[in-house]
Amino acid sequence: MKIKLWRFVIDVEKTEEWLNRLAAEGLHCVGFGFIAYRYYFEQGEAGAYTYRIAMLEESIGHPKSIQYIAFLKENGVECIGHVLGHVFLRKRTADGAFTLFTDRASQINNYRNMLKERKIGIMVLLVSALFYLYALIAGNINMAAGIGFISSHFHPIVIMFYACGLLLVGTVYSYIRQWRRYSARIKELQQEGALYE
């Protein structure tokens, strides 16, 4: 029997930790809904799988991505789904440790790809924030002037609008934190690279 759980992906690393924490308790993710807010799990042996979420360099249908996923499959890694340029992978824990990037160069390359995606994300979110601010100001002016059918801040449409605003602020904040985190890791790895091969 499949178990459904809800989670909105903002921070990929935290989602990965969440999937591994549930897997350690015997809940193994087998797929998710359209934008990865609804996850499907199956009950199984505790700790049977290790999960990783990887960033793809190209879109999911690109030959390079297809080749990469096929290579991972040959190496015992199962792809359970993809969303927004990320693939959700799992490997049986009994088959050994599951780490995708183990040397400095590939780790830096991976963080750079993640950083690039976050930068684009922040720009898109900031443009959305401008539209949101415009709608917020215009909406309040209209409400104060008695224009339109909404006359209260507690109207369901207004509450939904404010909830979207909170989500937007939360996402921008999380993306900025991730950007800073990945930048710091790249710098740290580069500093180590000056000393060690």
Binding site: F71, N75, F101, T102, S106
Partner: peptide
């Protein structure tokens, strides 16, 4: 050798000191 065999061989040769991740191996190959 195929990819997985390369990973296993390297782990064996280095007595577990060097373990190549699948992503790293893919990029290197």
């Amino acid at each position: 050798r195929h990819g997985y065999a390369v990973m296993q061989n390297i782990e064996g040769l280095t007595a577990g000191r060097v373990i190549l991740g699948a992503g790293t191996l893919y990029g290197a190959i």
